[in-house]
Nucleic acid binder design. Structure first.
Lengths: 196, 196
DNA sequence: TTAAAATATTAGACAGTGTTCAGTTAACCG
DNA sequence: CGGTTAACTGAACACTGTCTAATATTTTAA
């Protein structure tokens, strides 16, 4: 029916993303369905496509929400920490991933078709998280080597990410690794040891 | 119809996995379809379910094939290498992933439902690859620390894996990382530097 | 030789999915 | 009042994985 008790496109977009994020968190990427999102907010599927444009854009918007939450989580987890902030950052990385398995996993389960580029708004959110890490690495680096912070941060991010993936997908359990977080921290320490 | 020019279950299983692996390599996990596999080998879908049991078992079998190929690739790439075998191993890890983007990606895109355990045959294949790496790490370690090889190998595997993931999913490109392989190697060197 | 059992294979129904779009409803504006 | 515009629907389409009753052939046993 027309617009008896309608929302504006902006409000509806927000409702869809919020409900979508909830469903992604509960069902996980493999069982996520746009139709189910429509059902839970009481709209027809067509509406979701009118507002978001496509399934891929919907998932991207939901993942964008997850990135926002992740960035906030890292920020709040680091606020007020004075010593060993690098360790706190790694802890927070793992914590968020474990606390939000499904939503976090969707960040990597979903990929745009190879010919399509990430929307700028999404790239900015990824960069925001990265910049946070770059800053922490820079603070932990001797002043003479601060210029290497961005490259080192990217690499450490990848290392920690790998440990996080192997933790959540069961690889570490299969291999008998009992302390994934400790291992990740050890690798970061090894890398920092290169600089005094 | 019946079994006029039929194959034995064993032969058919092999045909399905081979064709499935081919389709996975071409289409990727997101676009992979059991029905398409059936079509390319000229059988009905039902047959695939009779032979493999379920979609998940089919993908697992295909991924198992990929693990076999991966293990062989690592082995042959290391054969005859005398110095810096660790570097050769990392190179081979990246090479295989890049040369087999889709099949390699499916290894991690697919996950069994959380309540189901990996079949033993599959776990064995994962362990086979890991053992290869453990051996290389052990060789590169001072004799006094050989006992730490398994744990270190798992951790280095995770680190390299993280770099590999960020390379293939575009994260490194987004962040301006131009030498992912070099970064991965640097992290491994840092870790080995801990031991003399 | 013949009947029974085992095997290989199919067809088709079922309940889902993403996607599209012509059409409907209701509010707003001149 | 009539026209424009924005919000929204729902049916149709072409797929998907899953299951099962039925069928065709071969093997085995009596």
């Amino acid at each position: 029916m027309g617009r008896r008790s309608d929302h504006t496109r902006e409000q509806l977009r927000e409702m869809i993303i919020a409900a979508g994020h909830r469903e992604m968190a509960e069902a996980g990427y493999a069982r996520f369905s746009a139709r189910q999102v429509a059902k839970t907010i009481g709209y027809a599927i067509g509406t979701i496509y009118n507002v978001l444009g496509s399934y891929d854009q919907l998932v991207l918007a939901i993942n964008g929400r997850t990135l926002d939450l992740w960035c906030d989580y890292l920020g709040s987890r680091l606020a007020g920490v004075n010593d060993d902030r690098l360790r706190a950052a790694i802890d927070a990385y793992f914590e968020f991933a474990i606390l939000n398995r499904n939503a976090w996993g969707a960040l990597y389960d979903f990929r745009l078709p190879p010919d399509e580029a990430l929307p700028e708004y999404y790239a900015a959110k990824v960069t925001a998280i990265t910049d946070l890490v770059v800053q922490e690495v820079a603070s932990a680096l001797p002043p003479a080597h601060i210029g290497e912070a961005p490259a080192l941060a990217r690499s450490l991010l990848a290392s920690v990410h790998g440990h996080c993936v192997f933790t959540l997908n069961g690889t570490f359990q299969l291999l008998g690794e009992g302390d994934p977080l400790g291992a990740a921290l050890a690798r970061v320490r090894d890398a920092m040891a290169r600089f005094g």
